[in-house]
Amino acid sequence: MKITSRAFARAVLLTIFSTHMGGQVHAANLTIQIYPVATIAHLIAGNAQDAIKLPEEIVTRTGQGLETICMANALYHEARGEKLNGQKAVAQVILNRVKSEAYPDSVCGVVYENAHMRNRCQFSFACDRVDDTPQESDAYEAALIMAQGAVKYGIYAEGLTPNFRDPAQTEKSQITHYHTTAVSPSWGKKLRPIKTIGRHIFYRSERVAKSIAS
Rank of each mutant, 00 (worst) to 15 (best):
L191F: 04
H116K: 13
M1T: 11
H179K: 15
A213M: 07
R10C: 00
E56A: 15
E136G: 00
D131L: 12
S5L: 06
T68F: 01
I201M: 15
N114M: 06
Q49C: 07
A41Y: 02
E101D: 15
Q174H: 14
I32V: 10
E136Y: 07
K172V: 01
I194T: 08
I201S: 09
Y112P: 07
G23L: 04
R129P: 00
G22N: 11
V130C: 09
N47A: 12
P167F: 05
C121V: 04
E57D: 15
A11R: 11
E136F: 02
A168H: 11
I32G: 00
D138N: 10
R192M: 10
A143G: 08
H177M: 11
Q33S: 12
P185A: 06
L13G: 02
E113I: 00
Y103D: 14
V208R: 06
G188M: 06
S124Q: 11
C127M: 05
R165C: 04
A38I: 13
S173F: 03
Q33E: 12
Y203P: 10
M117K: 15
E171T: 01
T176C: 11
I155T: 08
Q64L: 15
E67N: 03
K210G: 00
V107I: 15
I52F: 01
I194D: 01
I58V: 15
A150Y: 04
A7S: 08
L66V: 04
R97S: 03
S173I: 09
S186G: 09
E101L: 14
N114Y: 06
P193I: 02
E67H: 04
A51M: 08
A143P: 03
I3E: 03
A74N: 06
R118N: 05
R61T: 02
S100R: 14
F8E: 15
P193H: 06
I52K: 07
N29Q: 13
L95D: 08
I175D: 00
S5Y: 08
I94V: 09
G86Q: 03
R192A: 05
M21W: 10
Q64R: 15
A7M: 05
S137C: 02
V93G: 06
R165E: 14
R80A: 02
L14H: 03
G23I: 02
R199D: 14
T196S: 14
V151D: 05
